[in-house]
Structures are given as C-alpha cells and as structure tokens.
Design a protein around this nucleic acid. Structure first.
Lengths: 346, 346
DNA sequence: ATACTATGCGTGCACGTTACCGCACTTGTG
DNA sequence: CACAAGTGCGGTAACGTGCACGCATAGTAT
C-alpha cells in the first residue's frame, strides 16, 4: 500500500493524502474521513525506506557514560557494544556524541552535561549511576525527550526505555553460588564498593536475603571499601579486615573490582578462599581462568550498549514502539564457560 | 558522497559513474580510471536506503527446522526468535517460507526439501541435525547459495554463517556443575538421546573429559535412551537402569528431555538426585523452579534464531559481510537466575 | 557521398515519501 | 459589483540509486 494507491482509492491526489497523514493544511471533513477509512482499512504504514530517503536527516545521539577506565574497565565493554551498533548505523545517518564523566565526581557529570547541551542531539543513552547529578541534568531536557538508561535506574524518572538487571536477584544468586563453590562453608564476607549506588545496595540485600531464607545459617559480614580500584587502599583495607575479622570461607565482591580482592586473598594467603564477583572485565576473566576467582556474574554489558543504541534508533528514526524495560539475564561464568576458550578438544 | 557528486568531480554524467560502478556498458579507459580513483579516494558506498527503495525487491528466506513439538519444544524457542526478526523485517520486504521436518525421519527431511525447492527463495536458514539428508539437500542448491546453520554443523559444508555452541565445552561445564551441586559425589550417569548427533556426542565427550582431567575420580556410566520423549519408554528405561545399576549421585541429560528424567528420579525415588541438563524449555524451567532439576545449560535458542535470520538479511539484502562462525556462550541457569522471576523483593 | 556500425556517454524515469507552491473556487466586505 | 480573504485541493520537486533508451561522434563499408 502506498500513498498513491490510497489517493487513487479515494479519488484525490497524493497531496491530500499527505495532508491527512501529517495533519497539515486543510482538508474537507468528508474527504478526510474517506481517506482515514481507507488508511484504517488497509492498515497503511508509510514505507520506512522511502521515508528515510526523503527526510535524509542526520541523527545525533549523545552517549553519557562513566570513563572507560573506571569500574575496572566495565564501561569500556558497554562502550564497545555501543560502537558496534553505531558502526552498523552509519549508513542510516546516525552519529554519536560520546562523553565520559568521572563517576566519583558529581561535578564532573554536571560539567559534561553542559558540554552535551551545547550542540543539539536527538536522543540520549546514559548510565545514571550518579542519581542526583543525573536527575538534575535530565530536568534540562524537553519533556518526553528520548532517553535510554543502561545498567542503573533512576527512581522517579521514566525514560523511553531501560535496560538493566534485577540487582537483588543477582545478590541472591551470588549467595547460592558462593555456598555451592566454597569448600569451607562460611563465614562469608561481602565487600562492597560504591555502596551508595542503588543497585549495589540491592545486590547486598539479595545476598543477605539468600541466607536468611535458606535453612543454612552462615555468619555473614558486610564491609565497605572506598576507592577499591586503588591497589594500596584496597590491600590495606583487606589486610586490616583479615586481621580484625579472620579469614573467611568465601567472599562476594559486589562489582567489577573483584579481581583485586581475589588476587590478594588467593595469592597472599594460604589455601583457597572462594570468590564470587561481578562483571567479566579482562582482569576478572584472567583470574577466573587461573582459578583465583571461582565465579563471575555478568549483565551482558556489550549487549546492553548495543541494544541501547538500537532502542534509540528504533524509536527516534524508525518511530517504532520500544520495550519500556528489559531485564538482562544474570549470566554465570565459570572457568569452564569463558567465551572463546580454546576447547581442550576440538 | 553520492553518484552525482562523483559525476561532478569527474566531469561526467551519473550514467557513466553508474557504468563504472556496475561494470556494465563501455567506458573509456581514462574516464574509468578517473572515476575509480575518485571512488577509492572518497570511499564511496552506495546509499543502502536509496538502493533498497529503487530495487524494491521482495526477498524470501526458507526456514527448515525440526518440528516445534520435537526435542521437548526446543525448536519452538528457536522459531520464536526467527519470527521476531521476521516481524521486524517485514517493512524491508522479507518474507519467510517456514517448513518443519521430523527430526527422527530422514525421509521427512527429503520430502520437505523438495517442497522448499518448488518455489524460489533467496536464502536458507536451517538446523542440519540430520547430517546425511541435509547434505544431500544442500547439494541441490547453487554454489555459494546463502545458507545459515543454526545449532549444529555439517562437517565438509561451509555455509555463509554458522551460529552454534562449543558442545564439548558444554559437556565439560556440565561435569563441573554436577560435581558442584551433587550432595553425594558419584556415581554419575550420563543419559543421552540422539546419541548419533554430532554435537550430542561432543557433550558426552566433554563430560567424560572433565572427570578424566580433574583429580576427582568418579564412577561414570553412559546410557542411551531411545525415544526419550515418550513417557512410557523413558520410565521403563529409567526403572530398568536404576534396578541394574543402582541409584546415582547425579545425572547429566544431554538434551532438552531432562525434565522427564528429573521428574521420574526426584518424584518417585527417595532423597534428591542432582540433575543437570540442557535447554530452558518450559518444562525444564518449571522443574528448575520446583527444585527437581538443579541446573540447566542453555544455548540461547531464541537469539540463535533471531540472529540467524538477520545474518541472511545482512548478507543478502544489505550485502554486508557477515561473521562466518559465532559461538554462543554456554548459559547456566539455576533456580535463582531464571528469567522474569518475580523478585522476592522489588 | 551515403549508409551503417561501434563506441562513449547523457538523459530521463522509477521507487514512495515529504514539503511546499499555488490554482481554482467560495465566501465575506465595502 | 469589485476586490480581498479564506478554503480545499492538485501538482511537483526533490532524496540517491538503478536501469534502459538513445544521441552524438568517429570509423568503416558500399
């Protein structure tokens, strides 16, 4: 079905059909009704290809993520997914305006926000890990501006779409896996960075919940380590913790910084302490392969980035309805299912 | 960059540029050289949107899968992914010709192949689970005809693309997980259906390999159960096996039929026997939730179908290069990370 | 000299949509 | 009655590509 066919069926010109379709200009009520009837009846949808060709508009999407080097390289993986999608979308007129901020510094986000607002853009892909600064920034955007959230959420703000994970359930699963893989059952330590983050808190809650509901009763201690990515700080913290609280049967680290903890615990102490952590960043993958980490939970960061940009494209360019919220499955990685492991036997 | 711009730069008309681009008609050598230089220099790529609009060709892709009801509904999930992609691709002129065959009957595949060949099609998406019949069918297609394989592979045939999993590694992982989750360590039974299938054999090999290389020495027995999807046959087989070989500490079922085994073992016998199996079909999901199955390995069937159709689209319609082989990660599902589990706490 | 062919290239239409211009005709106003 | 303003609608030029038709010019044969 084309505008031309509709025009023929209604005995009018395509110009008139166009006016009905786009609500511009004036059309006699009866003509309008006739055309609308034909449109409804035939289920006409404008050909997106012709549409794109004619409009020939370039779209610019802003991408606002924490720095690639932060969170142990987690955001770099998200970014690679975004760039993969962006590359595919080049012929369709999509360009990116990518800006990184410092996730430890709300002022950095504010500054970068200003930078973003300087030039116009048609959609925003962001990870709202700094709730307040993010909220403030979003207030500056027009109402219903297309925004896609990755990873985190922002209570009170309803974006076009959100891609993330059930963090509470991730914590529950971490509990289950730590219990399954640890040789010495408890005590378990939870080591948490970014404890202010909404979804990090949820992970801790989930972990505790697992041991509260199961018949197992384990001694669990929750610690918070500031600046966990900094080696000296981290090791001093671990040293102190082990000294004061003793050696645990297992440890759950709530984010991608688990490799530093596992490295310290399983290289510097005797025996093996089971370690479960989050996110398959390269360092974690290495330690998992070496057996210093037992298990990594993951939230498909590359997929999140890739899919996130496509959501914007679908919604803004193709004007298709998009899923409001997608929960990414919680992936479990052991040494045995690391991606691209050269199989021991082909 | 457009043909018109190239034409202007070379001081010729777009017709001449077109002849150079498509190698049709005659062009003076020096004119050709000049145009080719400009093309190379500017990295001109025809606008895929304008191209599609002009060509306005309808494409038909054939889909050849085992019946949706076979393999405990596994193929239905694959299919849902394919249909999701097909729906998205409707505005781009893609239609499907979907034909199911009986995976237990090579003659059925032969018959359906004939049916497919009756009308023309531009690409083929298939799961070559019946190696010989599949090979014979593929011989009838033109050389370099675009074919995408899902799930299985066909030694000796190089398709446009293949999406599948490292089956051997899946078996290794199954060994690791059964060992982790079983209360009573061994003996372990492997129950295998479709033992003739290439990748099912690989799973068994991987499982055995895990216990050969690890320091654990477990008693492992491999059984084959024909017609495992049929309840009476299955239960008779299990009855007999338990009687002759005793109660195992854990069981690995090499395909989606694991729910029937788990149901029998953990509902009809005392205590809990750990069960690890393959593929998150609805029945397996239910038993995992109920705790009768401990762990399910999965190969993202929906993604495989979705991605498979997009590979054909990318290659045939957009004429983009496609990845030759993609290994899907081996997903691990426990009760705690089942998709869309309503979280115990929001 | 005329007719004919080969060569190299320009031109125009089509794909379906959008956006705008402006023509007829009606109605209002003095 | 003249003129202006308002109303409804037709026509058409792009967007960039693909494809076919056909026009000049030059070379060759009759």
């Amino acid at each position: 079905m084309t505008v031309r066919e509709i025009a023929a069926a209604a005995h009018v010109s395509i110009g008139t059909v166009d006016r009905v379709l786009h609500g511009r200009g004036r059309v006699a009520p009866e003509t309008r009704a006739k055309i609308e009837a034909i449109i409804a009846e035939t289920g006409y949808k404008p050909n997106p290809i012709a549409r794109r060709l004619k409009l020939n508009k370039a779209y610019c999407f802003a991408v606002l993520l924490p720095s690639s080097t932060e969170d142990s390289g987690y955001w770099k993986i998200v970014c690679s997914g975004i760039l993969k999608a962006a590359k595919e979308l080049i012929p369709f007129g999509i360009t990116l305006k990518k800006i990184e901020y410092n996730r430890y510094d709300p002022d950095s986000l504010k500054e970068k926000s200003r930078l973003i607002l300087e030039s116009p853009f048609d959609g925003l892909l962001m990870a709202p890990v700094l709730p307040e600064a993010s909220s403030q920034f979003l207030k500056l955007l027009p109402k219903n501006f297309p925004v896609v959230f990755l990873d985190a959420e922002l209570p009170g703000y309803q974006p076009l779409s959100r891609i993330g994970q059930n963090a509470f359930q991730g914590g529950v699963l971490a509990g289950r896996l730590l219990e399954a893989f640890s040789v010495q059952k408890g005590p378990y330590y939870v080591i948490s960075a970014h404890a202010g983050d909404f979804h990090i808190r949820k992970r801790v809650d989930g972990f505790l919940h697992y041991f509260q509901t199961s018949t197992l009763s384990r001694n669990i201690k929750v610690f918070e380590c500031f600046d966990i990515e900094h080696k000296e700080t981290r090791e001093a913290f671990l040293q102190k913790t082990l000294k004061e609280s003793g050696i645990p049967g297992g440890v759950f680290v709530t984010n991608a910084s688990v490799y530093g903890v596992a490295d310290f615990l399983n290289r510097k102490t005797q025996g093996h302490i089971s370690v479960v952590g989050y996110d398959l960043v390269p360092e974690n993958e290495r330690l998992l392969r070496e057996g210093l980490i037992d298990c990594i939970l993951s939230q498909r960061p590359e997929y999140q980035g890739y899919e996130g940009l496509y959501r914007l494209y679908d919604s803004v360019v193709l004007e298709r309805p998009t899923e409001k919220e997608t929960m990414v499955p919680i992936d479990i990685y052991l040494r045995e299912n690391l991606p691209a492991t050269p199989a021991s036997q082909p």
